[in-house]
Structures are given as structure tokens and as C-alpha cells.
């Protein structure tokens, strides 16, 4: 399985980033200013959590439309518990994370036990979670966020590294370790690669599906909580615009949507590409409305490249066989 480094998932996206950074900083030197890097890292930290949350579900060959709804629900639960019940923020954060896990487990149990496609189940749960969010908040934000949380969401611990980058790096390392070193991670990829074969080789597919959805819920909830800190308020609309991004980054990172193949490093680079492109639109005063178009084109471009690589790999292995 040893591959040359230019054939890895992360090589292409990394080249795009290097070229983009070189071109943009040559045209506009303020791109590499410490402040701008801090802004970029803040965006990457939150968006990486969102992307990982979808990536783990793509790994088992499913999709989770409710990523944004879980994130939004956890975010307003976090803010609401602090404002209404006066719960100290670390406990509120843990409870909000638990809520995210619970929402993920509910998705996983429904998908695993009924065998109905994850698309339909998570479309339904998306609207259930979002409805609960709106029912609780009545579309009004929670404003009373402790200063500590606001600080953690925006300040740096070592200029220009923001605090929020810590949970993001931690999540990336743990996910890499899980998917590449732990039996559970291998089971997740095996279920995504070929569910039937995984079942026959003694893997409990149901358990793996439920665990993957639980992890997805946990990551979505952390993204929601981090956003509360960054926006300095518990917005009910948190999570509404996560769907496209959550698929774009893993796909740019080389994930195969039919499952069994994802890359943590690639996904992280995918998030960075999206963040840089968005930043460029702002820096050069190009219409911010075009962000949606850029995201869509990036997805199409990435799935096209992945498809091309897949076909070439098949041809290559056919040649080797003959």
C-alpha cells in the first residue's frame, strides 16, 4: 500500500494552498499579516470541526444532513443553560456536548435498526432538531455569554494562534489515531468499504454505525459551542449554512462518498482551501455572495478529480494484474 507522496490525498490540496498563498500574498501583502492569519485560523478551527463531523459519516458510506441542526441545537443549549439556569460554562459545555452525542446516537440507532437510508432519517431529524431549536428560542438569540467564553472564542494564547485551534488540532489527532491505529477506526472504514463483507468478517455493523453517528454528533456540537464563543452570542441560526461546507471539505480532501476512504489531513487542507478562497473574496473586495458559487465549483472540481484518480487507479491495477 505504500504510495509515493504525490499520489496521497493531501498532496493536491497542499499544492493548491501553496500556490494560492504565494499568489495572494504577492498581490496583497496584508494577507500574511498576523491579524489576517488569526482570522483565517479562527475560521479554519470551527469549519474543521464541521467537516470532521461529516467526514466520519462519509467514512461509513452514509451522509448526515443534520450536522448543522445538531450544532445549532447544542449551541443554543450551551448559551441557554448559561443564561437561563446560570450553569458555569465548563459544565454547560459538557452538557451541550452530551446533547450532541445523544442527537447523533438517535440518528445512528434509527439508521442501524430500520435500515432506512441515512439521507431520509437525517433529513427528518434535521427538521426535528431545528424545530426544537426554534421552539426553545422562538428565533431570539441568547445574549448573556460569560466573558471567559467570549475570550476563548476570539483571543490568542500565542500570537497569532487562537485558543480555538486547540480543540481543532486535538480532534484532528484523535480522529487520525482512531481511523489509522484503532480497531474501531478500521471497522468504520471496513463498513464504508463493503458493509456486507464487514458483517461477514464479524464486525457488528449496527454498533459501528451508531458509534460513527455519535462521534459525528459530538463534533457537530463542539463546532456549535466554539461558534457561540466566537460570535459572542447563542444564535438560533448557527448551523443553517453548514451543509455545503461539511461536504465540500472532506471531498476536496479526497474522501470517496460511497465510503471506506477518508483523509483527516486532506479534510483539514480542504477546510483551509475554502477559508483562503473566502478570505480572498473579502480581501480583493469581490462580491461575498460569490462564496456560494466558489463552494459549489470546488465540490464539482474535487469530485471530478477524485473520480479521475479512481478510474486511473482501476486501470493501473488492471494493468498490473495482466
Amino acid at each position: 500500500m505504500s504510495r509515493r507522496f504525490w499520489e496521497t490525498d493531501w498532496f493536491g490540496p497542499l499544492m493548491v494552498i501553496v500556490v494560492a498563498v504565494a499568489v495572494v500574498s504577492a498581490l496583497n501583502p496584508s494577507f500574511l499579516s498576523p491579524f489576517n492569519i488569526q482570522v483565517l485560523l479562527l475560521a479554519i478551527a470551527v469549519n474543521a470541526m464541521i467537516a470532521f463531523s461529516q467526514m466520519i459519516i462519509i467514512a461509513i458510506g452514509q451522509m448526515n444532513l443534520s450536522v448543522g441542526a445538531i450544532g445549532g441545537l447544542s449551541a443554543i443549549a450551551f448559551a441557554g443553560m448559561m443564561e437561563v439556569w446560570g450553569i458555569p460554562w465548563p459544565i454547560a459545555a459538557i452538557l451541550a456536548l452530551a446533547l450532541g452525542v445523544l442527537a447523533g446516537v438517535a440518528n445512528g440507532v434509527l439508521v442501524a435498526l430500520t435500515g432506512i437510508s441515512a439521507f431520509v432519517i437525517t433529513l427528518a431529524s434535521l427538521s426535528v432538531y431545528k424545530g426544537v431549536n426554534l421552539g426553545i428560542t422562538e428565533a431570539q438569540p441568547f445574549y448573556k455569554i460569560p466573558d471567559v467564553v467570549k475570550g476563548l472564542g476570539n483571543d490568542t494564547f500565542f500570537h497569532p494562534l487562537p485558543w480555538l485551534i486547540i480543540p481543532c488540532v486535538l480532534a484532528a489527532l484523535l480522529l487520525w489515531y482512531l481511523l489509522n491505529r484503532l480497531p474501531l477506526g478500521r471497522s468504520i472504514l471496513a463498513v464504508g468499504g463493503n458493509e456486507h463483507a464487514a458483517e461477514l468478517s464479524g464486525i457488528s455493523v449496527r454498533r459501528v454505525v451508531i458509534v460513527a453517528h455519535a462521534i459525528s454528533g459530538l463534533l457537530a456540537a463542539s463546532a456549535g459551542i466554539m461558534l457561540v464563543g466566537r460570535l459572542q452570542l447563542g444564535q438560533p441560526t448557527i448551523g443553517d449554512d453548514w451543509l455545503i461546507l461539511s461536504f465540500a471539505a472532506p471531498v476536496i480532501g479526497g474522501a470517496i462518498l460511497s465510503g471506506g476512504h477518508v483523509s483527516v489531513a486532506g479534510t483539514l487542507l480542504g477546510v483551509a482551501i475554502v477559508a483562503i478562497f473566502t478570505q480572498v473574496l473579502v480581501l480583493f473586495n469581490i462580491d461575498p455572495f460569490l462564496v456560494q458559487v466558489v463552494l459549489g465549483v470546488l465540490i464539482l472540481w474535487a469530485v471530478g478529480v477524485n473520480r479521475f484518480r479512481e478510474v486511473r487507479a482501476l486501470k493501473h491495477s488492471a494493468q498490473v494484474a495482466s
Binding site: L126, S127, V128, Y129, K130, G131, V132, L134, G135, E138
Partner: peptide
């Protein structure tokens, strides 16, 4: 506000 929950 709960409508979406019912529909889901």
C-alpha cells in the same frame, strides 16, 4: 415555532 419538529 415547533412546526418543523412536527413535520420531521
Amino acid at each position: 415555532f415547533w412546526m418543523q419538529t412536527y413535520l420531521g
